[in-house]
């Protein structure tokens, strides 16, 4: 059995991270931006677990569990803010709510 393709896994997580990052900058709808942040976090989680598998340590997976906790907390606060924003501005477009300038 040849070596497990950890490096391909890291490349895959890098590509997923890049897609998520592109999404954060491109998309206007706040739901998509929050979703793309989740993609970035998931890509980082993938890289951590593969790193842990490569060195045969459990640290990578422990870090993934902490990433899960952080993603859950961030989504809950993000969704609360999105509901507040939708309630107040009737729209989820980030341009629409730009009141401050200068």
């Amino acid at each position: 059995m040849r070596q497990y393709p950890i490096d391909y896994g890291l490349v895959l997580s890098a590509v997923l991270f890049a897609i998520g990052m592109a999404g954060v900058f491109v998309r206007r709808n706040v739901i998509f931006v929050l979703l793309c942040i989740e993609i970035m976090l998931n890509a980082a989680g993938l890289a951590f677990v593969l790193g842990g598998a490569r060195w045969g340590q459990a640290d990578g997976q422990v870090m993934f569990i902490f990433i899960l906790a952080m993603a859950a907390a961030e989504v809950s606060v993000g969704l609360a803010l999105i509901m507040r924003m939708f309630h107040r501005f009737k729209s989820l477009d980030t341009n629409e709510i730009a009141r401050m300038k200068g």
């Binding site: 890291l10 997580s13 890098a14 991270f17 998520g20 990052m21 954060v24 706040v30 931006v33 929050l34 942040i37 970035m40 976090l41 890509a43 980082a44 989680g45 890289a47 951590f48 790193g51 842990g52 640290d59 990578g60 870090m63 990433i67 952080m70 961030e74 993000g78 980030t94």
Partner: peptide, 18 residues
């Protein structure tokens, strides 16, 4: 949005170094 994205960057940087 910006703090979430910056945490994503830091996390991915840590993952690569790890």
């Amino acid at each position: 949005i910006l703090a979430g994205a910056s945490s994503g960057f830091i996390l991915f940087g840590m993952a690569l170094i790890y």
